[in-house]
Write a protein that binds this DNA or RNA. Structure first.
Lengths: 336, 336
DNA sequence: CCAGCGCGTTGGAACGTTCCAACGCCCGAC
DNA sequence: GTCGGGCGTTGGAACGTTCCAACGCGCTGG
C-alpha cells in the first residue's frame, strides 16, 4: 500500500514524455508513435499506475456511469431486470452504480441524491413503489427511465412497462378456460402496478359474467402478506377454486396458506402469480404465472437511456412489453 | 435540464460571498455566521446546486466509498450479507459501490479495476468463487475483507467466515441423532467452502462409525446442479435416508429430485442445506439448514474495513462466526 | 491608547485528468 | 532552396472542489 498513488505525471517522467502523451496513450489513441506508446505502457505497468476516475470524470464532465435505483435486492425479480440493464450498459463501455430504496421515500431521496452527485448520465428506476415527485425532480438533471410504473410520467421521463391490466385479465381468462368460476384475488397494496392487475381481474370477471364471485383481499407484494390475505380469502369463501395473486412472491405465500387450509394445489385450488421470477420455478411446486420479459425490460430501459444520452433531443418514449401465460405446477382444471 | 450545472462559484456569486465560505457552509461548518449560512443555503437551493462528487473526492483524496464485489445478485444469500454491509457503511457516512463477478475471473478483474479506479477506500469481497490472485493484488491498494473464503489470505486481507468444516459435521451429527445412518452428500464443486463442508461430512461420518455409508456426488451450488446430483445419489443407493447438501440453493434442487424419485420429504428422506437463506423458508416445504448469520457477517466485514481505514496500522483479522442448526420442514426421524 | 486575539472571511494553490492551440521536425512539391 | 503540410509531441488552461495561510475587524486587557 504505497502512501501515495502514481499519477499520470509519474508515468510521464519515467517514460520521458509529457503527461499529455501519456493521457493519449493510456486511452489508446492512434496518434502516438509505437515507440512512445510502448515506453509509456511499460512505465505505467512498472509503477502500477491506475487512472483516477474522479479526476477523469471531472475533466471530462462525463462520468460514464448509469445510476440504477432498485426497490430491493431480495426479490429476485429486480435482479433479473438488472441483468438486462447491465448487459447493455457494459456493452456501451459504461458502468452502473446501484442503490436500493426499499420503497422508503426518505431513503430513495438520499440515494438518488448520491447518484446525482456522482453526475450519473442517466437514471433507471426499477420499483413498484416509487415517489413520483422524486422521479420528476431527478428528470430535470438527467434522462430518467422508469421500469414497471407506467403511471409516473413527466418531462424527461421514459417508461418501460408491461400492460398490467391486460395481464390481470389474461390470468383470469386462463383460469376461466380451465373451468374455474369462483376466482378470488390477492392484491398488492397501494401502488399502480397492483391496482392495474386488480382492475384487469375485475374487468375479466365482469366480462365472463362472474361479477358475483369477485372477491378481493389486500396483500402487499410480500410472501407474508400473500399468505395472510390468501388465508383470509379461503376462510371467507371456502368455495374458491382459483386464486389470482398480485405477484409471484405473494403467490408463494398463498401456496403455503392453501396447504395450511388443507387445500391441495393444484387439484383443489389453482394459483396464479405475476412476474415470472426464476426462483419461483424452483422447489416442489413450480408456480404458474403471468410472466414479464424481465431481462428484456432491463435491456430496453438501458437502450432508451443511451438513446437519450447520445442525442439529447430524442423524444421520450413509453414502451410496453407483453406478459405471457406460463402454466406450471399450480394450475389445473377446476375440480368436479 | 440546464445545459450546465451550477457550481460552488455560482452559489458564491449569488450569495455575495467567496467560494470558500460556500464550501464551509455546505459542509455544515460552525465557523460560518448564521447570516452568511442562511444566504448561502438559500442561494444554493434557488440554483439547484448539487456538489460534484468527482471534484470533491479529487480535492479530498478520499472517495468515502466502499467497494463490494458480489458473486451475483440472484442467490439471495449474497443480498442478505450485503444488507449487513450497507447498514454499517451508511452509518459511517460512506457509500457502497456494488459490482458482480459471477465467479468469472475475467469479469472480476475488470470490475475490481473499476472499483479501484474510483479510489474506493476499502473492498469487501463476497463470493465462494473468487480468484485469490486478484484479491491479493487489490489488497496492495486498499484494505480488503473477504467474506466466506477463509482460505484466501495474504498481506492486507482480513476474513470473516463460518467454520464450514464444523458446520458440515454438525449437519451429519444432527441427522445421526435423528436416527439416520445412510447419509449421503451433494458437494458444491471446486471451491474451499464446498470442500470444507464435505470434509466435515466425512469426518462426522467416520466418527459416527458410518464410514461405509459415505457417498458423495458433486454439485455446483446451483439448484440445477443439486437436483442432478441428488437424483444420481438416489439412484446409486436407494437406501439413503439423509442428504446433506452443500448449500440451500442446491438443497432446493435436491427436494425436487426427491419428489421426482417418489421419495417423500421428510418422511422418507431428510434433507439439510447450508446458509440459511431467507427465501428457503418460503414455499410449501421449508428447508432445514445449517444457518450462517449472514447479515452479521456483512456487518462484521464492514466494521473491519472501517477499523483499518481509521487506523491504517491496524492488524488484519480473521473472524469466525458460528453456524447454527435450524430445523424446519425437510428433516424428520429416520424411517422404520 | 495600543497590542494581541479570535472570529468570520478570503484568494490562491492543489488534486489528476482531458482538451486545445501551438510547437518543431521531416518530407515532398514547386 | 524554400515553402507548406502532416505528424508526433508539448505546456498550459480548465474541470469543481477542499485546504491553507493570511486578511480585517472589533473586542479585551494592560
Amino acid at each position: 500500500m504505497s502512501s501515495t498513488r502514481p499519477t499520470i505525471n509519474d508515468v510521464a517522467a519515467r517514460a520521458g514524455v509529457s503527461k499529455s502523451l501519456v493521457s493519449l496513450a493510456i486511452r489508446g489513441s492512434d496518434r502516438v508513435s509505437d515507440e512512445s506508446r510502448e515506453a509509456i505502457l511499460r512505465a505505467a505497468d512498472e509503477l502500477g499506475y491506475r487512472p483516477n476516475a474522479a479526476a477523469r470524470s471531472l475533466a471530462d464532465r462525463r462520468s460514464r456511469t448509469i445510476g440504477v435505483l432498485l426497490h430491493d435486492l431480495h426479490n429476485p425479480v429486480f435482479a433479473q431486470v438488472l441483468d438486462g440493464v447491465q448487459e447493455i450498459v457494459r456493452s456501451h463501455g459504461y458502468r452502473t452504480m446501484l442503490v436500493t430504496g426499499h420503497g422508503d421515500s426518505q431513503r430513495e431521496r438520499a440515494e438518488l441524491a448520491a447518484l446525482l452527485d456522482f453526475q450519473v448520465e442517466g437514471l433507471i428506476l426499477i420499483s413498484h413503489r416509487l415517489d413520483p415527485a422524486l422521479a420528476r425532480q431527478a428528470a430535470r438533471e438527467c434522462p430518467v427511465v422508469i421500469v414497471m410504473r407506467h403511471d409516473i410520467t413527466g418531462r424527461g421521463i421514459s417508461t418501460v412497462c408491461a400492460d398490467d391490466v391486460r395481464a390481470g385479465r389474461e390470468a383470469v381468462e386462463q383460469l376461466v378456460s380451465l373451468g374455474h368460476s369462483r376466482i378470488a384475488h390477492v392484491s398488492g397494496g397501494e401502488n399502480r402496478v397492483a391496482a392495474d392487475r386488480e382492475q384487469g381481474y375485475r374487468e375479466a370477471m365482469a366480462e365472463a359474467g362472474l361479477s358475483e364471485h369477485v372477491l378481493v383481499e389486500a396483500g402487499d407484494f410480500t410472501e407474508a402478506g400473500g399468505r395472510v390475505a390468501a388465508a383470509r380469502l379461503l376462510e371467507r369463501d371456502p368455495g374458491i377454486t382459483g386464486l389470482v395473486v398480485a405477484n409471484d412472491l405473494s403467490a408463494l405465500g398463498a401456496v403455503v396458506a392453501a396447504q395450511e387450509a388443507d387445500r391441495s394445489v393444484p387439484s383443489d385450488l389453482s394459483i396464479v402469480g405475476f412476474d415470472g421470477m426464476s426462483l419461483a420455478a424452483l422447489g416442489s411446486l413450480t408456480l404458474t404465472t403471468m410472466a414479464q420479459p424481465l431481462e428484456e425490460m432491463g435491456r430496453e430501459a438501458a437502450e432508451r437511456v443511451f438513446r437519450r444520452i447520445d442525442s439529447p433531443g430524442a423524444r421520450i418514449t413509453h414502451d410496453q412489453v407483453v406478459s405471457s401465460w406460463l402454466p406450471r405446477g399450480t394450475t389445473a382444471p377446476a375440480p368436479g
